[in-house]
Amino acid sequence: MTEPMPPSASSAPDRTALNYTGLTALFINCTLKRSPEVSNTQGIIDLSARLMRAQGVTVDILRAVDHDIATGVYPDMTEHGWATDAWPGLFPKVQAADILVLAGPIWLGDNGSVTRRIVERLYAHSGEFNQKGQYLFYGKVGGAIITGNEDGVKHCTSNLLYSLQHIGYTIPPAADSGWIGEIGPGPSYLDPGSGGPQNEFTNRNTTFMTWNLMHLAALLKAAGGIPAYGNLRQNWDSGERFGFTANPEYR
Rank of each mutant, 00 (worst) to 15 (best):
I45R: 08
Y135M: 13
V119E: 14
E249K: 11
I146H: 05
W107I: 05
G142A: 03
I183Q: 11
P4I: 04
S10F: 10
A218M: 13
L220V: 02
M52D: 08
Y135K: 09
G72S: 08
A17H: 06
I167C: 01
G230K: 06
C30Y: 06
Y20V: 04
R15K: 14
F27Y: 15
I106A: 09
G225A: 01
P75S: 05
T31F: 09
E79H: 14
N40M: 03
A97Y: 04
T202L: 12
I180D: 00
R63H: 04
E3V: 12
M77S: 02
Q42M: 13
A175H: 02
R63E: 04
N205V: 02
L18K: 14
S35H: 08
R50S: 15
N159T: 12
S158F: 02
A17L: 14
S11P: 00
G72I: 09
G89P: 10
T71P: 00
V65D: 00
G193D: 13
A64N: 03
W179A: 05
F137G: 00
D14M: 07
L164F: 06
D237Y: 06
Y74N: 11
A175Q: 04
R117D: 00
F208M: 13
A96H: 06
K154S: 12
E240V: 14
L232K: 14
L190K: 07
L213S: 08
A83C: 00
P13H: 07
N205E: 15
I226H: 05
S8P: 02
I167G: 00
S177L: 03
A25T: 09
F242L: 03
I28A: 04
V153E: 09
V101M: 07
W87Y: 07
P185R: 07
T157Q: 06
T41K: 12
G224K: 12
A54L: 14
S163E: 11
N29K: 09
I99T: 02
T115M: 15
T245E: 14
